[in-house]
Write a protein that binds this DNA or RNA. Structure first.
Lengths: 106, 106
DNA sequence: CTGCATCCGATAAGATACTG
DNA sequence: CAGTATCTTATCGGATGCAG
């Protein structure tokens, strides 16, 4: 039995996804583009500051795209890129696992 | 288009898995039981304290089991429970995604 | 030597108030 | 509405040390 090979890609992925709130934000965006306030309201205990930080990080990683619609008032929407949408199977995996193994009695 | 329903199981799962190092530790244990020092050595920059913390958390969650073999010197091994092993598909998903989308040029 | 406790500085998160 | 600035609080993680 050997160690798992150190895989930098895998570790990078974990580094991105394992930041607090990041995965939940992506999950929330899966159904489609959403505005800042909506994401904020959908995630209990997530402050505007942290959401702002995370969205910026995700934009840098190319997982989220920020669309500005110059209406009045201006409308800004966040949506997943293809790279972001490609994470859907991962969330299915987590969903399946949590459905089978997580008890809420605690 | 609706918000994703708030799913406490999913959020609990994310809370567990998204702690720094946790997923990498589980990944490292997938091939089989391992001792403390081996896990520590396999994960660059992971300190003994943090590993100890994480293993205790994972034990509480029923994801990892700690086996004590009363030899001299004592031998302690950590292994995944069925609940832990059930996470394997999740790591496949991350692996696939990172293989396809993560660039290391940065 | 291995596994873990304690201490403490660094970092991140949260509350609140404010701006374009 | 979509953030930012500032401050306080909580959490993390690295160094060290000690017990079995």
């Amino acid at each position: 039995m050997d160690d798992h090979q150190r895989c930098p890609r895998f570790e990078k992925a974990m580094e991105i996804l394992s930041k607090r709130w990041t995965a939940l934000i992506i999950f929330q965006l899966l159904p489609g583009p959403q505005r800042f306030a909506r994401i904020e309201n959908s995630l209990q205990n997530l402050s505007g500051k942290v959401l702002s930080d995370r969205l910026k990080e995700l934009e840098l990683e190319g997982i989220v795209k920020r669309d500005v619609y110059p209406e009045t008032p201006v409308r800004i929407e966040y949506r997943l890129t293809d790279k972001g949408k490609a994470l859907a199977p991962l969330f299915d995996s987590i969903s399946n696992w949590s459905g089978e193994w997580i008890q809420l009695s605690q």
